[in-house]
Amino acid sequence: MDLEEIYQTAREKMEGYCRVCSVCDGRACKGEVPGMGGAGTGSSFQANLAAWQDYKLQLRTLHQADDPDTSVTILGEKLTTPILKAPVTGSQYNMGGALSEEEYTKVVVEGSQEFGTIAMTGDSGDPTVYDVGVDAIQACDGFGIPIIKPREQDEIKKRIKMAEEVGSKAVGIDVDGAGLITMALKNQPVGPKSKEELEELVASTELPLILKGIMTADEARLAVDAGVEMIVVSNHGGRVLDSTPGTAEVLPEIAAEVGDEATILVDGGIRAGVDVLKALALGADAVLVARPLIIAAFGGGKEGFKLLLDNLTTELKKAMILTGCNSVDEISSDILRKY
């Protein structure tokens, strides 16, 4: 099995939902929500990719970083790679249904654990989808992180309790899902959260609380002041609001504001190991990857999923060698040029 075989199989299995383009940039699937596209014109999806390309890497070879260490510690766990699986659900209505929700979720949670990283599972307009993620995490002895849509407070607390019961590493809320079309279509109310509501949720659990969907420094500050331990810089893959900036544009100012107080993850348009390196150099502690890993799961099952994780991590390691970074901790903005 190689990546080209995986992509070809995925094209067949995801026909009508994802074209598995040679460059996954959101142009062919703009406005296809449900589906794999971005909202409206697709400009937010496209901005995510373009923002990473605004940064170039400083090539350096006069050093001794010949075997870099790609491991990171997240939530007290040493991971082999700073690449985590982003929370995406909807196998049937977003991805075509060639894998059931249970099959897809099992692939990404087990595959992540076997590779030495963590998968985030998601929530959906179909309430049973969250249960599927929690069940998969339980089967992996709690090695996973369920992410909850910004539902009403009591509904979130119920789902936090489920995460606690299976011993998950943390629990999160993707507040960028406040305007999701797929939730509205299923009559599942979601909406924004106030600082007081965040404080209430933080106080309701001993698990670290993650907030996904932060795109401004002021909201990063608000989240951290409310007790959130980890934030994810994300515009929901460009799927909820047209005309947002790319995540790489806003990451540096968010990292400058709260980087010493919270763990920062970022997603959106990360397609190669060099993108991971740029994200770490801009202040992220790790990254989330979604669409490429979904395609790998559909095209190659668990082995295809792990193969792509390995490919991305190998690309990252090579880029670290050629920029003089011996470990993730050594990566800094000094390796970047912006155009």
Rank of each mutant, 00 (worst) to 15 (best):
D154R: 13
C325I: 10
D285K: 06
E114F: 03
V72K: 04
D260Q: 08
S22I: 14
R151F: 13
M120H: 12
A51D: 07
P68Y: 00
F298C: 12
G122S: 13
P252G: 11
P34Y: 04
E102L: 09
L241R: 12
L265M: 12
G301W: 08
I295T: 12
A98Q: 00
S71I: 02
W52M: 13
G122F: 03
K169T: 08
M162A: 15
I148P: 06
A50V: 11
M215K: 02
C325F: 09
Q188D: 14
A284Y: 01
G26K: 05
V108D: 03
K106I: 03
E196V: 12
I295K: 00
R221G: 10
I294E: 11
A262T: 07
A51T: 08
E229V: 10
C140G: 01
T70L: 07
A50T: 14
A223N: 02
M1R: 11
M120P: 04
L79G: 01
G213H: 05
T9N: 15
A184N: 13
G268Y: 00
K78L: 10
A47E: 11
E229H: 10
G42Y: 05
E77N: 12
I331N: 02
Q8P: 07
D141Y: 10
V88Y: 04
C29L: 06
L99H: 02
K157W: 09
A272N: 12
Y130V: 09
R337L: 15
F115H: 04
A50C: 09
T9D: 14
F115R: 02
Q58P: 07
L185H: 12
D242R: 07
R271K: 14
K317L: 10
V276L: 00
S243D: 15
V240K: 11
A51W: 03
P252W: 01
H236P: 00
W52Y: 15
K106H: 14
K56I: 13
E253P: 00
E164D: 10
V107W: 06
E101K: 00
V228Y: 07
P82R: 04
I160N: 05
V190C: 14
E152Y: 11
V171F: 06
L180F: 11
A248Q: 03
V233F: 04
G259Q: 03
A290W: 01
Q58Y: 14
E32F: 13
N311S: 15
C29G: 02
A284M: 03
E200Q: 14
V108C: 06
A220M: 02
P82E: 05
G35L: 07
D135H: 12
H236N: 06
M14C: 09
M120Y: 14
V328M: 09
D25M: 04
I295E: 06
I147Q: 09
L209C: 08
K161G: 11
K56V: 13
